[in-house]
Each structure stands twice: as C-alpha cells, then as structure tokens.
Design a protein around this nucleic acid. Structure first.
Length: 431
RNA sequence: GUGGGCGUAGCUCAGUUGGAUAGAGCACCAGAUUGUGGCUCUGGGGGCCGUGGGUUCAAGUCCCAUCAUCCACCCCA
C-alpha cells in the first residue's frame, strides 16, 4: 500500500482502455470527416513557447506549468495545452508557404500542476483541432460543428454551446475603457482576485464566480455593443452559418475565455451533469497568435476538449454504449488432459490467422478450472480437445452464450466459429 | 495556494464506554461433480488496522504530526 503513481496521474487499465479506443475512433473519424489531418507533436516544449503563446498573465503559466531544467540547462515545460505547440510546428515547418487553410487535429496527454479533484488531473488528455490561414466565419462555425458532432456521436444529448465574441485589437480597447468606467465604483467590493484583474485584465471579472463580483457586474455594458464593424459582421456570419448547420447555441456575453490569445469568436461546451467541471471543451479564434509566436500574420481558430470529462459525460448520458465490459478473446481452447497442449497451440494459431482473438490456459489447470477461466474472459466460444476428439478427428465446440455444444469435424472448425462470430450487426447490439 | 471529509484483506465496509488469536460480503484458489463455466454448498490463502510519535497496565479505538486519497474554492479540460 506504499507504491502509487504520482499525484494527479491515473492508470487506464484494460477494462477502461477499450472504451478509450472506442472514443478515439470517434474522434479520428469526426475530425477527418471535416477535412482535418492528425499531427503528433512532442509532449514537451521550450518553456518560452507557452509563456508567449498562452500568455504570461494566465493561471496556466503563472501557477500550473510542469517546468524543469534539462541536462543541457534548457528550461523545458510539459505541454499544458495543444495550441501553442501546433502553432510552433506550423511556423517551424513553414506550413504557411503551402496552400491554405491548414486543418490539423491532435490528441494526447497534457500536464497542469493543479490540485486534483473530480474530473481534474495533473496528466489529462485532450483532443483538439486547429484551422490556420483563414478568417472566414464559416470555418468558425465548422470548428464548432466538429465539436458538436463529436459530443453527439458519443451519445451525449444534454449539452450547451455557449458563444460570444471578444472583439479584436481594434475594438476591445474601447470596450475595455467603458468597462473600467462602469466597474470603478464597485472596485472596493471585488474579491481579491478581481481587484487584481481590474488592473490587469478587467474582462476576466465578467466570468468571476464570486457572488459579490457577479452582483457588481450585473448591468455591465455588453461587448457585443462595442464590436467594430468587421468583428460585428464576422459574428453575424458565424451565427448565420451555425443556424445553417442546425447547431443551437446560447449567446453568453459573460463568456471570456481564460487564455489571452483569443479574438472575435469564443465558445465553450458545457455539460450540466458534470458538477464543478461542467466545461468539457472550449476554444476560439486567435488571429494574433501566430504572428506573436514569430510567424507571418496568420489567422487561426481551434478548440480543445477534455477526454476524461467527455468519457465521463458519455457514461452518464449513454450508459449502455459506454459501460466497461470487454472480452479479450472470442475463442478459448481447453484441453481435457494436459498432454493435448500442443494441439491447442496449433489450433490457436490457425484461429488467430483467420483474424479472430483466441487464447488458452497457461497454468495447467483442470478442465473444470479452464472452463471457469474461459467463462471469466467472456469468450463466446470454447473448444474442447481430448482423447476422443483427437482419435476421431473432431472438436467439441461450446457456445458459452447459448449454453450448448456440438461436435465439429476438425477441418470445419474454422468455418464454424467464423459463422458464429461474424454475425449480423443486430446480434452484437442485442448484448 | 485555501477549506472540508476519509484512511482496517484485492474491493465495499463492520469492529460496542480503549480490553484477550481483528471480522463480514464480494473477489481469488480448491473440492462437492473421476471430460465442462455461470447457480448452490464446503474448505483454503490473504491484514506492520496509511506512517511516525505520544497518553495508558492495555490503542484498530484517544491525542499530535505526517503522508495519501476524495470533494469543494481559485482556475480550467
């Protein structure tokens, strides 16, 4: 009881990893349907990339990064998010010289030094997409469409897409000024954090959860009233295209994403029954980020979705599809006497060669114990080899689900198990 | 970083105002069933009672510390 993994880490054991594979298949497929291609990026980067890319006023950079000095005296950070590394790769490989836009997706572990709680880990997993090189509002809607499609395909029907526009460097300063004007009388009532935010990033006060701050913010001027023409038109077009796609959304003027780089479109996917961790995914447009990171001026938009939370939500809302039940094998070969082990081995290889999952006992157990073990693996079929069978050239094929068995001539056994296992789809779903 | 809850078998938990070899269910192994799983019955293995200190004739039980874990806040995914 002394050995355990580091705080905030988690092992995904076989009964669960099977569900992750199922989820990952959905993610790959959804992204590819919309024309996104996978990039696989390193899990660590130069610390500076995140300081620049994520923004050094953010909580992520200020208190949540796993940063260390490597043996070459370089400051290295385990990636806390996927956008900055994607941007780095886009610039490094001069992808901007190719035909645009560039549509990428990624998935993998992210790291944040936070205190663990329900739905929050120090190593967690995200899926994300990035579209570089176009500021067409249609791509904003498309990015959200990918997110919504994923959630729906997972069998999640209870969710909300919150949408806002946070403006651009042309119009946000004006709004910021108005907001400061409005908030000034309330300054002394703010919580400690918001007193800081008031000077550094007053927009963040809007989504503070502190009741006192919320009260103060109630009648605040809406950012949407201060958007410049370009941002306003962009926002309208995004909403039009979303409508075209049949995607429902909730306009949320309070939505201000935590990362510094967002411009124009900002959105968040909320799930009601995840408690404190209702935010499953979020994203937005970041038209200044690529330039900020040293690339040519290039617009971009993306989102990231938390996979632990996504899976938890799916299990809650669609338990039939996401319960942990998995059979590692289709066929289990059992021997009446230990001496038939060689026959079992060659039969196994034949079954595996035909594309089915098969296994046997490796502990010299009694026939009864082998049967018991076979039952525990969840194998649909058991093949029995013994004296009689070997002499007369047949196998006993037992169907564990139907609780019945038959004698099958040795040369027909492969075809026979195939015909049982490869059944019409409704048979499999009936389980 | 702040606050709260909880640490007894692989898992879920009992354990009386401190008192004798620390229990149950599930799980695991074996047998009842001399060639067959799921049900039933019988038996078996398995506990530094999180760790360190203290109080006491005596600590799983009381006190202190520490670690782990869970939940919430901040923030996020």
């Amino acid at each position: 009881m002394e050995i355990s993994g580091p705080r905030g880490t988690r092992d995904i054991l076989p009964e669960e990893s099977y569900l992750w594979q199922k989820m990952e298949n959905i993610l790959h497929q959804a992204a590819q349907q919309y024309g996104f291609s996978e990039v696989r990026l390193p899990v660590f980067e130069h610390t500076e990339l995140f300081e620049r890319g994520v923004g050094d006023t953010t909580d992520i950079v200020q208190k949540e990064m796993y940063t260390f000095t490597d043996r070459g005296e370089r400051s290295i950070t385990l990636r806390p998010e996927g956008t900055a590394p994607s941007v780095r790769s886009f610039i490094e490989h001069k992808i901007f010289t190719k035909a645009q836009p560039t549509k990428w997706y990624y998935m993998g572990p992210m790291f944040r030094y936070d205190r663990p709680q329900a739905g929050r880990f120090r190593q967690f997993h995200q899926f994300g997409i990035e579209a570089f090189g176009t500021s067409d509002p249609d791509i904003d809607a498309e990015v959200m469409a990918v997110m919504v499609r994923i959630v729906k395909t997972m069998g999640i029907s209870q969710f909300q897409l919150h949408l806002n526009s946070v403006g651009c460097p042309d119009c946000r300063p004006l709004y910021r000024e108005r907001l400061i004007q409005y908030l000034t009388p309330f300054e002394r009532d703010f919580c400690g954090d918001c007193k800081q935010r008031f000077h550094k990033n007053p927009l963040r006060i809007l989504d503070c959860k502190n009741p006192g701050c919320q009260e103060a913010v109630k009648g605040h001027p809406a950012l949407s009233d201060y958007l410049c023409d370009r941002c306003g038109q962009h926002f309208e077009q995004v909403k039009n295209t979303l409508a075209l796609y049949g995607i429902d959304y909730v306009l949320n003027p309070q939505l201000v994403r935590g990362l510094d780089y967002y411009t124009k479109t900002a959105f968040e996917l909320l799930l009601p029954d995840l408690g404190a961790q209702a935010a499953v995914g979020g994203g937005g447009r970041y038209d200044g980020l690529i330039e900020e990171c040293g690339g040519p001026p290039t617009p971009g938009i993306g989102f990231a979705i938390g996979l632990e939370r996504l899976l938890t939500a799916a299990q809650k809302q669609n338990p039939e599809a996401w319960q942990a039940s998995y059979s590692p094998v289709d066929v289990f070969v059992v021997t009446a006497e230990n001496e038939f082990a060689p026959d079992a081995c060659s039969l196994l290889e034949e079954i595996r060669g035909s594309g089915m999952k098969a296994d046997k006992d490796y502990l010299s157990r009694s026939l009864k114990a082998q049967m018991k073990f076979a039952g525990k693996t969840g194998a649909r079929l058991v093949i029995v080899i013994g004296e009689e069978e070997k002499k007369k050239g047949y196998f006993v094929l037992r169907d564990m689900k139907l609780h019945e068995q038959r004698q099958i001539p040795a040369d027909q056994i492969i075809d026979e198990i195939k015909s049982i296992l490869v059944k019409p789809e409704e048979e499999q779903y009936a389980e």
